[in-house]
Design a binder for these strands. Structure first.
Length: 266
DNA sequence: ATGGTTGCTTGGCAA
């Protein structure tokens, strides 16, 4: 049972890459972020033709947008509007895996702009408020109870070795102490297990995103771990394998994020 | 310190 999360940065533009990924890696479920199109423009037929008959979408024109694509049926679809801005940043569904239901939440957390100061940068304030609302909702609605998973582009690299230089990024949005604290509170609110770090020790560098702005992303290797897979305590024992597909960053016209896949045992 | 690239759209944000 394989579940992938991937910030695709325009699903229409990168459908050929997605198709290649699905054909070669064949995850059971693919969670996408930054699809950047309205629901009616989402290439549902392409996914169907690849054997993914179940597609649920929360999209909007031009920005953001999330979707879950699955071989198996998806039910109890929910789309939450965090911060009441009308942004398409969350979708969830229940799916049957290994003889029981799993609730899957797919998120695209606000990037937060450039200036890490909530008083002068409304986008940063939005990001912090979004994280507070996530924390409260996870706690109040017991989101991590039973078999649950929260994946997506959370736009924060919480650990020292989730960035190429801890020191250089302390004042860079995605790795500031206030963001890290708020994401950690999200983790604590559900007693989530950080699935990627179950497979790669905290002392080792681990990235899922490399900026488009580098002259040579691979040579400089200045990445960040912005994409996450969190699993509830009940699923901790089922974690089997992790794949961060770094080679996808080198594909033709790539996303700046790579697919992250977790495998759960049967 | 600064600027670097990409996508959605065609001027300028957002990331």
């Amino acid at each position: 049972m394989k579940i992938t999360t991937w910030n695709i940065n325009s699903v229409r533009l990168r459908m050929p890459l997605v198709a290649h990924f699905l054909k070669t890696r064949a995850p059971d479920i693919l969670c996408l972020q930054e699809t950047k199109c309205r629901d009616a423009e989402f290439p549902v037929r392409d996914f169907n033709a690849l054997g993914y008959r179940n597609v649920v979408i929360n999209g909007q024109k031009g920005y953001h947008g999330v979707a879950i694509v699955s071989k198996n049926p998806l039910r109890l679809i929910d789309k939450r509007d965090f911060c009441e801005k009308g942004d398409a940043r969350h979708i969830s569904a229940e799916v049957e895996i290994n003889g029981g239901p799993l609730t899957l939440h797919n998120f695209y957390v606000p990037a937060g702009g450039d200036e890490p100061d909530r008083d002068i940068n409304p986008k940063f304030a939005h990001k912090l408020d979004f994280l507070d609302e996530m924390r409260d909702w996870i706690k109040k609605d017991k989101i991590a109870k039973g078999r649950a998973m929260l994946v997506g582009d959370l736009n924060i690299a919480p650990l020292e070795h989730d960035v190429w230089s801890h020191k250089a990024l302390l004042k860079v949005v995605s790795h500031t102490p206030v963001e890290v604290e708020k994401l950690t509170a999200v983790f604590r609110a559900g007693k989530w297990i950080d699935a990627l770090r179950r497979f790669v020790p905290a002392e080792e560098k681990l990235y899922t995103w490399w900026s488009y702005r580098a002259a040579d992303w691979a040579a400089s290797d200045r990445g960040r771990r912005l994409d996450h897979i969190l699993v509830s305590e009940e699923l901790g024992g089922a974690l089997k394998r992790l794949e961060v597909l770094k080679e996808a960053r080198g594909w033709e016209r790539p996303s700046d994020h790579v697919p992250v896949t977790i495998e759960l045992s049967e």
